[in-house]
Structures are given as structure tokens and as C-alpha cells.
Write a protein that binds this DNA or RNA. Structure first.
Lengths: 243, 243
DNA sequence: TGACATATATTCGAATCGAACATAAGTAAA
DNA sequence: TTTACTTATGTTCGATTCGAATATATGTCA
């Protein structure tokens, strides 16, 4: 029991012990041209210079984790408000060769058009297609596809991307997260395209329509899309509250 | 852009900044007498002396998060191996009045009989029934019921318990976590009791049996339960691999 | 041997989903 | 003005799943 007591006292005064750094990394996802995509930052410095990393930063001592995620969304990704959700915490000892860093990963979902300004403002950013080579919810790593094949990723950010895709696949058909990937008004076809991109499989159109309308998440606007050379679809809006 | 550069440099040398402490807290869950239960530790010291807390401890500088969870499972909860899964990271600034502590919560699942030795070895431990007053997957806080009503909980541990229950409810019928709450061999009725306790609703017996057998998770042993004064049920075993 | 309690199996109707098909509503070209 | 064309929207039908009810099986115990 003396060992237990010693441990207890040690734990009671953690200031005597070296503390890890805590970072937040952001998986900023969207759907571009029918495929999932994520925002990456080119690393200029050691370690992993030249590789691509998730936007991230260290959590400040007086800043909540969620606040750090939103700050990095603005500072590193040059993005305004977005749907943000905590994903998982990565804590392998050697995941950063410089020092012990525990990373709390978040993922954020945004409509495709929200990336244009950020990409123009910061040339170190890129928006890459995410290639998922596992079916359903098998899980595993994914590839960030550049112009000439998969981009080399820094740290364990490939694992983080893979987990983000897995979480998204798992949530999209029983939670309203898909709407965060679309503009304010959208057609049912656009919503289905988003679901198909995330799930990686084609979906049955009438069944998808029925399911979505039955969930009560959608509100018909009465407006129709413009610019199509065929019958225009009705525009819907996400109904925030089930009331 | 100078502000961005300054931020970049600051982030690059986090040793110059104060680091939070990182702790792991464990939600050790089981099903006792048809109700979910969790292991709590009575706090003797300030802060929250007299309140009940989850077993936890600080993550060491050379220890992975998952390893810390398993160490605390042994040292603080006096438990051997168990199903352990990361739950969520709690990072509000004032969640611990002493100092900034970020807690990575894990939950562990164990059969009811595995708690007896721990409760005898450490009188500061208690195994309390968890009262969930929200239906389905609404989510929210839960109560840890003592002999005379709900126990006062320390820190944000009520929120952690609530999230653990929510996660468990969400996973139990499409993932094989339920088996971690049962001994090696068990009857289908026992499995259904566990599911009903977690979900908080009665289930249809033939449908439950069909679903479980169709999933291919179960292996019939050919043995039967003993000690019943009626027809004994067949004992099943969890089939680890789908092959 | 038979009452009893529960395990196990079967059947049936409701709800859900995928697939095929039918109809509607726009544009664009004849 | 009409017709071809393309996609939106709606309907129907069969397969599957699930809950509920019912039937049968199998052990203990009086």
C-alpha cells in the first residue's frame, strides 16, 4: 500500500512533473466535385518539412479545447464559423519527434465555396481530395490526393484523416451533419451527392428522398434552382429545430 | 501578416508557454441487477472532498494516453484487463479549481463479478447504479445513485458519466461491446438483460435472439446453464473473429 | 407423472427499403 | 408552336426486417 500512497502523493502534485504540450489539429472537410476533400498546410520547417499537415496549434493555458479549435479555424485556416466537433485525442509518445505532444483532433464541415478565400489568402494551404479505399465502416488510413498522386503527410495526420472519414460515414445518415457541407439552400440531388461522396456508394434516389423528407430536417422554400437546362429542382433549407 | 508570423513563431516554441496538465479519467461500467453501474472513488482531499469522482490520474511524460488508461485501471481501480475505449476529452478552463487540467476520458466495460475484489481491496471505492432519465439517445447528465439518493460528484464527472452512457447506448446494438459486460459464457437471456439495462427499454425476445444470432458474433457451446428450476438455456460464447 | 416456467421456434402483419416505372416541368431546337 | 430531351417528382411492388403473438420443447419439482 505504500506504493499506492506514494503514487497518490505524486499525482496530487503534478506540477512537480513534466507536462506534455497539448495541441489541437483540425480536419477541415468538404465535398468538392463529388468527392470528400480536406484542407492541408504545407510544412516549411523541421520536422516533416515539405510534408502536408492538418492546420493546428497549441492550446493556451487559459483557453478551453473547443475555443482553441475555433481560434485555429480562424487563424490557421482563415475560416469563419463552421460546424465543429471533437473527434479523438492522439497520444502516442513519439508522434512528434520534437517533444511530447498530445493532440486533440477536431473536425469541421464546410460548404465547398467557403474555401476559396482561404486558399487565396494563404498559399501554403491546399484542398485535396481524400481517397478512401475501405468499404463501409471498416476504417483505416486514407490518402490525400495531390496532382501527382498521394501527398506525404506529416506526423500521424493520415490516421487522423482516416478517423475523421470514418466518423463522418458513421454519422451522416442518422444525424444532420450533411447540411453543414451545403449552402443555405440546396436541392435534394445536391444533398444526395454529398451523401454519396461521403459514403462512397451510389444511393437509391426515391428512397433517399423519402428518408430525408421523413426525418423532418428539411424545409421546402418553394423556390427552384436556376441555370439548369431541364426541370429545375426545388430548393430546400435545413430546419434547425424540430420544435 | 505580421500578427500571423508572430503567432507562428510562438506556436513553434511551445516550451516558452505554460502547459496544461493532462489527466485520464476512467468510467468503469458494468450492469448489476439489471441496471448500469459505474465505479467511483470517494475524494478525501480538497477540492471536492467528500464528493465522488471517477478513478483517474495524470498522464506521464513518457506514457501514451491508452497506456495511462490501462495503468489507472490497474492502480486506481484495482482491475485487470478490460475492454477500454477512449470517450472524449474535457478541456474547460475551470474544470479543476487547482490548475488547468485537460482530462481524456476513457470508458471500460467489465462483467459484474469482476468488481468484488477491487471493492474489498479499496474501501474508498463504490459501485453505484447509474440513473438515466433521458430517453433514447437524447443525452444529458446522469445520476450516480447511492443508498440515500444521488451521490454528489466531483468536477465535471457527471458530464463524463452522461457521455459514457450515451456512447454505450449508441454502440451496443451495432457493435459487440455488450459481450464485455458478460462472463465468458452466457445465455441469450443474460445478453438481452444487459442490452435492456443499457438501453433502458424492454426488447422483443424473439427479435433480439434473431438479430444476435444473425450477426455472427455468437458461438454456441452446446453446454447449458445450471441451477435453474426450469428449462436451462444454452450457453453461448463471443466469437472473436468473423474469419 | 404432471404442473410449471422458461427456452426455442414459427407465423403473421406492419414498416422500411430498393428497384422499376410513370408522370411533371422545365429548356432548347425544329 | 411543337416536339425532343433531361431531370425532378411521385407511385407501385416485392424483398427484407422487426415486433407481437402463438406454438412447441425441455428442464425442475411436487
Amino acid at each position: 500500500m505504500t506504493q499506492d500512497e506514494a503514487l497518490f502523493l505524486k499525482d496530487y502534485d503534478p506540477s512537480a512533473y513534466e507536462r506534455p504540450s497539448v495541441a489541437v489539429d483540425l480536419v477541415l472537410m468538404s465535398v468538392i466535385d463529388g468527392a470528400p476533400a480536406a484542407l492541408l498546410v504545407r510544412r516549411d520547417e523541421h520536422p516533416h518539412a515539405g510534408r502536408w499537415a492538418l492546420p493546428g496549434g497549441f492550446v493556451r493555458i487559459d483557453e478551453a479545447l473547443d475555443d482553441a479549435a475555433r481560434r485555429i479555424l480562424g487563424q490557421k485556416a482563415h475560416m469563419g464559423d463552421a460546424y465543429v466537433e471533437q473527434l479523438y485525442s492522439f497520444g502516442a509518445v513519439d508522434r512528434d519527434p520534437r517533444m511530447r505532444v498530445i493532440s486533440v483532433a477536431y473536425f469541421a464541415l464546410l460548404p465547398a465555396d467557403r474555401f476559396a478565400a482561404a486558399l487565396k489568402a494563404d498559399r501554403g494551404l491546399t484542398l485535396t481530395r481524400i481517397a478512401v479505399d475501405w468499404p463501409g465502416e471498416t476504417g483505416g488510413p486514407v490518402a490525400a490526393m495531390g496532382e501527382d498522386g498521394p501527398l506525404p503527410l506529416a506526423f500521424d495526420h493520415g490516421d487522423i484523416l482516416g478517423l475523421a472519414m470514418l466518423r463522418l460515414r458513421g454519422k451522416i445518415d442518422y444525424s444532420p451533419v450533411g447540411f453543414a457541407l451545403l449552402p443555405d439552400r440546396f436541392t435534394l440531388r445536391a444533398l444526395q451527392d454529398v451523401h454519396e461522396a461521403i459514403l462512397g456508394v451510389p444511393l437509391n434516389k426515391p428512397a433517399f428522398r423519402r428518408r430525408m423528407l421523413d426525418k423532418g430536417w428539411l424545409e421546402a422554400t418553394g423556390e427552384r434552382e436556376t441555370g439548369s437546362s431541364f426541370r429545375p429542382a426545388e430548393l430546400f433549407r435545413f430546419k434547425p429545430r424540430t420544435a
